[in-house]
Nucleic acid binder design. Structure first.
Lengths: 344, 344
DNA sequence: TTTGCAATTGTAATCGATTACATATAGCGT
DNA sequence: ACGCTATATGTAATCGATTACAATTGCAAA
């Protein structure tokens, strides 16, 4: 589909009786053009239905008008609110989004690499902290230093700017809540081991437990992967446990739901027989049965913040020496999946 | 951030000792170039780290390399799988996605209109069937006929190509399932009244009921809006009903969860006292309590199909006289939120 | 009147890749 | 040896907007 007869700047110039330079100026720097001329140009632009050709402008400006957005797994609805936040900022700036699902089959590093170049984008947002270092290095190359920011997840070496929620605080809040309910036997279900979020949430959980003088028992720390099935699997393991924790903190809400659901099928009730805390406060959490006690994080705001941070980097040709890191507060939403200990 | 010293085609040409024309050909139409030359060019391209400048190519080709994607509400996780399907196709074709949330505040028609132009995109996918006709007309204008396809939702007048699931079949399957369980008093909770999906699901429900000789009672047809809260509201209304339906079919899973959750809080059990069928088979459905009986639709496939349809339109400069409409089959997933009638 | 400056507008080069057309070379048949 | 064709490559115009620089004009100061 070609833009056959699309009016161009020369058409506007002809109609307005001025040169293309004047049209360009009237449109982008109105104050440099005489009022009369400006009005004539605007009228001509309206009359011809002129729309700027972004490819031409971008060619000259050496910009692309696009931002690459790396998402670990688009199918995961957790990202939708973050996406919405990012979209709201970038779209309002006229930037387009090059969404790439890093988990999609057939998306190998060299394929992704194709997108991390100046000719494709003006900057990169990654919601995936586990990018192969090939990619990260390449984007650090002297002649390839596109502004690059992490959102939600981040890179352990902290060499890139990022915006994320306070995961340490989240884990603390969850544990403190359970402790305050009288729980002394607290377990944890982790996300994927290689994931930074998993790591921080797990470490912070252990720290918080230790600080409250709680036992940190290996058999109460389960491995998982952020899925419903991971939670369900742990449910079966919990049932088989000789000495069971009376409360379990889950690295996300999916795990929590999987856990509760599988327990329910085994005739075990949450919170009567086990208290469960989730993480993320996904939409369904408040209408799950029981309504989920969970750690809420500002996903939409996070999306906006990371997009704004990137815009800054694009404006200033990078971030200079500093590595800006923004950490957003989280809060605990107490609902019905947790109850005082001692009912078990 | 500028692509300062980025190698261009002239650099490759110099290194390879050929003209830029030959480089261009070696890269895009390898068979038109002698083997020896081709290899020299490829080597030079690799050596210089050449990446094509898309703005330049697009300027010449009068393409933008971007596709506008109108999403009714990005926050709604229902769309994530469709998005993933669309992404998988478009990304593999090197097209970028200009995502626009049509529900976002500040996104008024004239703002959206800005995106529906040749200089912004080569085509448009809308997951929103309720676009103001201003937009649709403008995109039908003789000089503005960008390929435009609907996905999931569609426009009642059927003047645009679309890919969608078989909503009629979905409603039928749900009703037939309830009827086969012995239910004779069946209700329905609708989505937003102006939404095509709502309309078709509601009409098809009424048809199916009528065909099975079931009563279609107005007070059993509830208005809603695809949210958890809508379902919760109906739960309270159902409780107050003198003559209650023994089963309710919901226009989507959120409504179903809201309904079940609110009933649960009132001490009413699903499916013992009410059978509930949802629609969409969202991830959590199989782990809801009770696991949700619901109509599954191929969301990822739908995304891929709609993207492929658009690509076709872009290739062929439109769709010609026909208005291609692709309807994908759905299926009923029977779980535990429905039970034989008569237990009430 | 002349000079200088500011304000306004025009001319033309430029961004980087593509491709129609022209040119060059090799191979082949007669 | 000549001419023809097929193949390979180069030359240069082109896409559409921007902007450095030049040119023009008007006006004020000297």
């Amino acid at each position: 589909m070609r833009q056959q007869g699309a009016p161009k700047i020369t058409d506007v110039a002809r109609v307005a009786g001025v040169s293309t330079a004047t049209v360009s100026r009237a449109l982008s720097k109105p104050e440099t053009v005489a009022k009369q001329t400006r009005e004539a140009v605007l009228a001509a632009a309206a009359e011809t239905g002129y729309r700027i050709n972004l490819a031409a402008r971008n060619l000259l400006r050496r910009r692309t008008g696009a931002v690459v957005l790396l998402v670990p797994n688009l199918c995961n609805p957790f990202f939708s609110q973050i996406l919405a936040g990012i979209e709201s900022v970038l779209t309002s700036q006229g930037l387009s989004i090059l969404m790439v699902d890093t988990m999609q089959s057939g998306t190998r590093p060299d394929f992704i690499l194709d997108f991390l170049h100046h000719s494709r984008a003006d900057g990169i947002i990654s919601l995936d902290g586990s990018l192969p270092s090939v990619l990260l290095n390449s984007s650090q190359n002297s002649n390839e230093n596109l502004p690059f920011v992490f959102g939600c997840e981040w890179h352990p070496q902290e060499t890139f700017p990022s915006v994320r929620a306070n995961n340490q605080q989240g884990a603390r809040l969850a544990i403190e809540h359970l402790v305050s309910l009288g729980h002394r036997h607290i377990g944890y279900i982790n996300g994927p081991a290689e994931n930074v979020l998993s790591q921080v949430r797990k470490n912070s959980t252990q720290e918080a437990l230790a600080e409250h003088g709680m036992p940190v028992r290996n058999e109460w720390f389960f491995d998982g992967d952020f899925t419903l099935e991971a939670g369900a699997k742990v449910a079966r393991e919990w049932i088989d446990l000789e000495d069971r924790p009376s409360a379990i903190f889950c690295a996300n809400d999916e795990i929590a739901c999987g856990l509760i659901s599988e327990l329910h099928q085994a005739g075990i009730n949450v919170p009567d027989q086990l208290s469960v805390v989730g993480y993320d406060d996904i939409d369904i959490a408040e209408r799950y049965i029981p309504a989920l006690t969970t750690v809420w994080q500002p996903r939409f705001d996070l999306g906006q913040a990371v997009a704004n941070l990137l815009l800054e980097g694009i404006e200033n040709d990078g971030f200079g020496e500093t590595v800006p890191i923004e950490i957003l507060p989280v809060k605990l939403t107490i609902r019905q999946s947790t109850a005082p200990a001692g009912n078990q």
